[in-house]
Structure formats: structure tokens, C-alpha cells
Design a protein around this nucleic acid. Structure first.
Lengths: 240, 240, 240, 240
DNA sequence: CATGAATGAGACTTCATTCAT
DNA sequence: TATGAATGAAGTCTCATTCAT
């Protein structure tokens, strides 16, 4: 992406860079956050430790790349499922609602589908200091937001079609995201086996209250939910 | 709480223990989670590193104590403001709504009022591996949940008084907490100055949608909000 | 022993001292040599760490006491079994041979009977630096040797009765001890399961060759061995 | 041995590895076993502490290497002197006896010739806990035993030539080793100046009794001893 | 482009010992 | 006599990073 990698040199370099990021992601996946050390990563790639510094100026830079990669994967998820919704034969207002629920469920089930990625995103959001220098990160933020622009669009569409009351679509998108993010984080309390904290019902509770609070008709919501469930089921696990 | 520290020895010990926890909290506050190392902590206290191990058997144990301390402080906040609501002259249904909004705002404004504590809680929740050994932590979880039992109680009261539709109070409390927690974490995106992410409006958006989604009448909500705002205003800052 | 503990104060002190030594011995027994730390020892005794220094000026001094205690226990063993031999009805030459074999077997089976004590003795002998300042230790050496004087005496008796050829009894006693000590140490190679290293047959081999080398008649040796085996059997384990 | 270190990199690495082992050996030599700490070792080599971990994954691994080094040196000794015996013009039975005595004296005089190595071996055998994890060490044990296979061979030859009675050669070799090991350890009691403990006469006593006990004719033994003394004299000292 | 040796700081923890109370 | 707080040094090991080759 960005400048087209024309020369063979540049192509090779891009390939290696990608392999590093992928492997780093795998390390985090398999062993948690602190399993990602430069030496282990190098070892895994059959490189010497120093070699990594040809591709990333620091560990932080590498981390940022890993996080971006995860975001991209999530965005791809979103796009795929949105396409599946488009393929359905639905009225405009219903379609908008389904789109919203599908997007929400894609995000909400991430911890089940790819736990390591979810953990990484959570940690990213939860730990300001893991964000690289603002200067470096800022140019990427709009690009990132663009990846997720489908959600505010869906909110706008839903209002236009009368499925929801009027309201700032961007703010609603962010609010939805925030709520789901919070729910996802509680997932780790699962191991304490306190019943009311289970993630599944929690997400259902949140989605229902929010959408109805934003003006969805209860029956419309139920119908949309069952359709969304068909596209993003509950118990899926991909684990990479 | 618990055993009254009778002997002077025990009193002194309790004092030192508290001082250690407080200082540890400060370190996390000032330098992020990984700024809390045993040696730095000891240095800060003018102790030898080993001395800390007379008070806590391991770093994990100390961390747990710090986390509990923050939770207790927050619980105290909640109790104080709840008492302020009790002092108001309100109908049962309105009172229940105000209680809910007050609790929500106490939590939601924590990042403004005591940024360090909020950061710590966020990080705690955001980083599974920072949770101490399940074995050690489990006995404390019910105790912690008890501290926050006021919120589910308020939900139950609200339903009973007809201010909200029926629904599992505990699950609603958790859902509310999750949403606010998610909103709080987005706060750190503030520095990227993307408008829709601002915390204040975001929280308002979430609270409104949720409570109305759970059956609150819009005018009742507005009234309750303005009363809650009086008790937990927006721009407060206590720092540390 | 030594000065009679007349005053009640002194009696109490002696008792505590003994308790400390006993507990130290138990710690080594249970957890190996490095399990004996001053704080753990104090903890075990419900004392504060500093208290031990009222009874022993240093850890080394304590260690010495523990080692002496083990030696005394071993000497007691030897005396008991020797008495059992005396109770038998035997010719003078046979009795002398049996005495020797019994003494040898008492020592050789120590690792089976009380592994920790054997380990301690081995370590003591194997690690010069664990011996406290020569100055402190020297006065005790003759006392220790006296405890084991039965063995050279038995050698002298055996020569006098014609059961063995003439030879310096003391030197033979020491040689016997050395050989058995060496055999005992190989015991730890047992876990490598190399067959020829097994302790039982090894000791038999050594005893047989030595005594016959010193002039014992083979039949006399076999007879004496079976009698000694009756008094100090093979597989015993006391483990304290 | 093993892979020829072809590349310059590998050669350099092998050299450094050897230097580390040698220096570690020296530290043990000079200050006892616990003088060998990673930091001191690194300091001695003008390295940072962490650098050692490029060559040995843990302190235990390093210790194992040091122990193996000492064993190898001893095996070399044995082979050299055995070759000297082979060069003599002797009858088969006498040669076998001389071989045995030479091997025994090589081991028995180690404390005089290279005190540090003897101390290390003694301590190694004397302290079970210093033996590295069984898992790691086991593969090396047969290799080590092979180095010393000359001794059981000599026992077999002696029996075959009629110089000794029949008997399991391996067990005799181990028994001999054990006895000498025990004698060597008593050497440290020398400083207490108790006469019967002197190492020289003690070893003579043991060797004579064992070999005659195993069937050697006294005159043959005396003759073999004087020849062995010529090849491994008493008072030699190489130090380090 | 890649190696691999090396740094230097810092991580947590344990221990023998001292000393005011 | 005993406590318990505290020291200070030392222990092993890990990690991000640099640099000559």
C-alpha cells in the first residue's frame, strides 16, 4: 500500500517486512504480550537479532505495525460480512439495522474468534504508552478510521430509512464501539465464573438497549438480530 | 476493617504497609505500569529493596494490594455521592434514576477527577496478564463486587418503581459498567483531536441510549440527568 | 555434656540450643542443604531471625553444631549395635570380625537409613570450606575420634585373636572408613541407573576384599557377614 | 572432537567457550564452589554478565561443562601413563597389575598434582545437588564412563592372566575408585595433624588390602607397586 | 543485507546479619 | 531474652539495542 513497490529490491523488502509482522503477531498470539521479544522474534525467523533493525527502527515501531495489521484484518472481516448482508433481499430500513448488528457482532466476537488479536487491540487501547509517539501515529489515524467508516454510514442509512431516530451517526458509531470494547474487556473476568459477567448475554443486553434507545422498534430489532446471528454466529473460533 | 490493629507494633506495620501501597500507586500514576519496580519503589521509600518483602511476599501481591486500594477509593466515592442523592427529596422512581446516573457519572468522570486511578483501572482491565494469579485473586472478587452492589440495587429499585422496564439488574449494572469503561478508554484518543471521540458527549450519548433503551421515559431521563449533574459535575479535577 | 548445667537459666538455655540444632537438622533433612537458612529456621521455631544469634554467633557455628549432632547420633548407632554383638555367644576371633562388619555396615547403610544425615556428613567431608575455622573445630576433633574408637579397638582385637594378620589398627580403621565413605558417595549415581554402581553390592565387594586382604579366612568372613547382616540388615529405612 | 570448527566464526566461538570454562574452573579452584558466580566470572573475563548466556543457557549448563572439562583432563592423564606402562617389557600378568596400580595412583595423587581439580571432583561427588538436572547430564554419563574404561579392562586382563582371582571387573573398578575417592577426601583432615589420616600411607594400605583381597600374590604386588611408583611418583605437584 | 558478540541496565528475589526496642 | 524492621550485597537471568565484520 502507499507507494507501489516497483524495484525487485523494494518488493523483497516489503515481503520480509510483512513476514516479520506476521511472525510477531503469531508470537503474541501464542504466548501473550511479553512473548514478543526481539531476540525470540529473530530466532523464530532464523535471523540474528540485529537484522530486525534494518526493517524497524525500534521495537515500538514494530509493535505499531503489528497493531495496524490486526486492525486491517478486522476491517477485512467487517467488509466481508457487510457484503454478505448486501447479498440478502431486505428492505432498506431492515438492511441498515442488520448491517449495524453484523458490524457489532463482528467486533464483539473477536475475542472468541481470534483471542490474541482482541487482546492486542484491548491492550493497545488500554495502554496509552504503547501507542508510539503521537507524531508517528497521527498520520495513520484517519486511515484507520476510514477502514471503519462503514459503521457510521450504516447509522446514517438507518436514520434515513426510518429504522432509527435521528442522531449524529459518527458519535453513535463511536459509542457503539466503546460499549463493545468495554464488554470485550470484561471477558477476562470469565475465569472468575461470576455469572452476570458472561460475555455473550452482556453483548446482547448492550446492543438491545442501545439500538432501542436510539429508536429501533423492538420487533424490528429481534428480526434483525436473528438475521445477524446467521451471518456472525456465536461460538465461532478461528484461532490463527 | 478486620482486626483492630491493637499493639503499637501492629499499628506501625499497618502504617508502613499503607505507605508502600500509596507510593506504589503514585509510581504507577506517574510513570505507567512498568514504572512500578520493586527497586524504584524501595528507593522512593528510602528502603533497601529487600525490605519490601517483609510486607508483601511478592511483587504480584503488592500489585494486587494497589489495585484493591484504587477500587476501594472508587467505592468510597460512589457511597458518598449516593448518600447525597438520598438526601434529596424525590419520588421513588425519580430517585432510582438519579442514583443510576450519579453512579454512572462518578465512574465516567474518574479519568478527569483522578486520572491516575482511572488509568490504573483501565490498564488492570485491559491487560489480562496483570491480573494476579487467579487463585490468589478469587477470594477478593466477591468482596469487590459487594463494594459496588449499590448499582444493581438501584436498577432493581428503578424497575420496582416503574422507572425502567423489568430486566436482570445485575446484568444491567455490568452492561453499564462495561459501556462506561469502553468510553473511558477512548479518552486517550482525545489527543488526536478527532471530534466525535470526545469523552463528555460520548458518555451522554451512551447513558441516554441505554437508559431509554431500558425503558426510561425521555423527560424523566432529562430531569434525572440535570439533578445528577448537580451532584457530579463535569469539569471537576482532584488529581491524585 | 561438658560443664553441668546447674542454674535453671543455664538449663533452659541448653534446652533451647538443642531444640535449635534439632530443628536445623530437620530442615536439612527435609529440604536439602540450602533449605537451612536462618530465617526459615527461626520461622520454624516461632522465633524471630535475630533470636538465633543469642545462641550461636553465626550460621557457621550453628552448622558445626548440627554436624556434631549427626556424628553423635551415628556414634550412638555404633554403640548400640556393638552391644548387640557382645550379646552373642561367639569365639573371640569370630566376635572381632563380626564387630568390624557390623560397624562397617552401620556406616555404609546410613544413606539408606537416614539419607539426610548421610548427605550432611558427606557434604561436611566433601567441602572443606564448610568446616568452621580450624581454631574452633580443632578441640572437637579428638572428642569425635573418641566416639569412634571402637573400630580400631576391634581391629586390634581381631589381630590378637588371629582373625586378621598384624597391622596398624588405627590406619586400618581409617582406611575402612575412607572406602565406605567413597562407596556411600557413589550412591547418588544410582539415579543414572548404571548397574555396576549400585551401593549394596559395591559395599559387599569392598568389605570382602579389604578383610580378606587383611588376612581374614574366606569362610570366617562369610560366616561373620551373615551374622552382621542379621544385626544390620540391608533395606532398613528410618528417615527421621 | 566431534564437528571440526571450520568457519572462523565457529573457531572464535569455540575459543571463547573454552576460555569461559577455563576461567570458571580457576574461580572454583581459587575460592571454592560458591566463588563461581556468573557476575564474578563475567567480571574476570571483562564481560557483561549477560554475555555468558550466549555461550551457556544457564549456570547449571556452565557448571556441567566445567565438570566435564576436569574429567577429561583426568582421563588424559590416565591414558598417558597407561601408554608408559605399555612401553615396559613385562609379562602379561605383571603388566595387568602395574596398569591397575598406575591408574589407582594417578587418581590418588590428583589432590597433590592438581589440588583444585581434585577438590572439584570431590565436591561434585560430595554434593548431590550440584549435579545438574538428571535429564541434561544423563547422555554424558556413558561418554564419561567410556573415558575410564581402561580400568575395568585392566581388571579383566589381570584375571585372565591369573594375576587376580575371577570377579566382575566393572564392579571392582568402581570399588577401587570409591575407595580412593574416600581416601582423597580425608586428605583435608591433614590439617588437624592426626597421624593415621595421612593420605600417602592410607592409599598404600587400601591398595594393598584390596588387590591382595582380590587374589594378588604379595610378592607380585610389591614388585608391581615399585614399578608403578616409578611411573607415578609420590610427591609430584603440577598445580593448575 | 545480515551476523552474532557484547553491552548495560534492570528485573525479582534471598540471605546473613545488625540493632533499637 | 526476644522481636521485627531494616540493610546491603549478592544471586540468576532477560532484554532492547549497537556495532564491527
Amino acid at each position: 500500500m502507499g507507494q507501489a513497490a516497483s524495484t525487485p529490491r523494494a518488493r523483497r523488502r516489503a515481503k520480509t517486512t510483512a513476514r516479520i509482522v506476521e511472525t510477531g503477531l503469531r508470537l503474541v498470539t501464542e504466548g501473550g504480550f511479553e512473548a514478543l521479544t526481539m531476540q525470540r522474534l529473530a530466532g523464530e525467523l532464523d535471523y540474528a537479532a540485529g537484522a530486525l533493525y534494518r526493517y524497524f527502527p525500534s521495537k515500538d515501531a514494530l509493535l505499531l505495525a503489528v497493531q495496524l495489521r490486526v486492525s486491517e484484518l478486522l476491517a477485512t472481516d467487517l467488509a466481508e460480512r457487510a457484503a454478505a448482508v448486501d447479498a440478502l433481499d431486505l428492505s432498506a430500513d431492515r438492511r441498515a439495522l442488520v448491517q449495524l448488528l453484523v458490524a457489532a457482532r463482528v467486533y464483539a466476537t473477536l475475542p472468541e474468534r481470534r483471542p490474541a488479536h482482541a487482546a492486542l487491540l484491548a491492550r493497545w487501547l488500554g495502554s496509552p504508552d504503547l501507542l508510539v509517539d503521537t507524531e508517528e501515529a497521527r498520520p495513520r489515524v484517519p486511515r484507520l478510521l476510514a477502514l471503519f467508516s462503514a459503521v457510521p454510514s450504516a447509522f446514517a442509512a438507518a436514520s434515513a430509512a426510518g429504522a432509527l431516530a435521528e442522531g449524529d451517526p459518527m458519535r453513535r458509531a463511536i459509542a457503539l464501539w466503546a460499549a463493545l470494547q468495554g464488554a470485550a474487556q470484561l471477558r477476562k473476568l470469565d475465569r472468575f465464573e461470576v455469572d452476570a459477567v458472561r460475555a455473550g448475554p452482556l453483548v446482547d443486553e448492550l446492543l438491545r438497549a442501545l439500538l432501542i434507545g436510539w429508536g429501533a422498534a423492538p420487533e424490528a430489532y429481534e428480526d434483525a438480530l436473528s438475521r445477524a446471528r446467521a451471518i456472525v454466529p456465536d461460538g465461532e473460533r478461528e484461532e490463527r
